[in-house]
């Protein structure tokens, strides 16, 4: 039984990193494809399109930090909590990466013909990033309380 609980714990430990990676992969790929299309249509400002397409990579960084934090707290009695926190944080990071990719692709698409709206067009992507930060920060806070409570 304890082995199953520990397996769930490890599942929770790796979830933020793995699911965050999935989100970043999909998000960066979509935004990157939009950036490649925009390169065909624009004469300058190529660097910023490629830069924006890398925005969804932050989710995997948050996932790595949460994973390392969870790993240090993994014991048989904290494993169920770590499973829940890790899995849900991972899902939040994955969704945020995927949808931030949509936002970045749209920002690239609309700003290629109207450079002056480039900044404001990134606002939706920044808002989505904000939700990823919430998931990241509160996962760390909860891990702290989980460790402290035991």
């Amino acid at each position: 039984m304890e082995q199953i609980i520990m397996a769930l714990g490890w599942f929770g430990v790796f979830s933020p990193m793995a699911l965050g990676a999935v989100g970043s992969i999909i998000g960066c790929a979509r935004a990157g494809q939009a950036a490649c299309g925009a390169l065909l249509e624009t004469e300058s400002g190529h660097g910023r399109f490629i830069g924006v397409s890398a925005m969804p990579s932050s989710q995997i960084i948050y996932g790595i930090v949460v994973m390392l934090t969870l790993q240090g707290s993994l014991h048989a009695d904290t494993a169920p909590g770590i499973f829940a926190i890790g899995l849900l944080a991972g899902i939040a990071l994955m969704a945020s990466g995927v949808y931030q990719g949509y936002c970045c692709a749209s920002a690239i698409n609309v700003s290629k013909n109207k450079a002056e709206i480039f900044g404001i067009s990134l606002a939706p992507a920044a808002v989505v990033e904000g939700f990823a930060v919430f998931a990241f920060v509160f996962a760390l806070v909860l891990v702290g309380s989980l460790s402290g409570g035991n």
């Binding site: 925009a38 249509e41 692709a105 609309v110």
Partner: peptide, 9 residues
């Protein structure tokens, strides 16, 4: 994603 971004407004 690539195709639609490559088309002008």
């Amino acid at each position: 994603y690539t195709l639609i971004s490559s088309l002008p407004y």
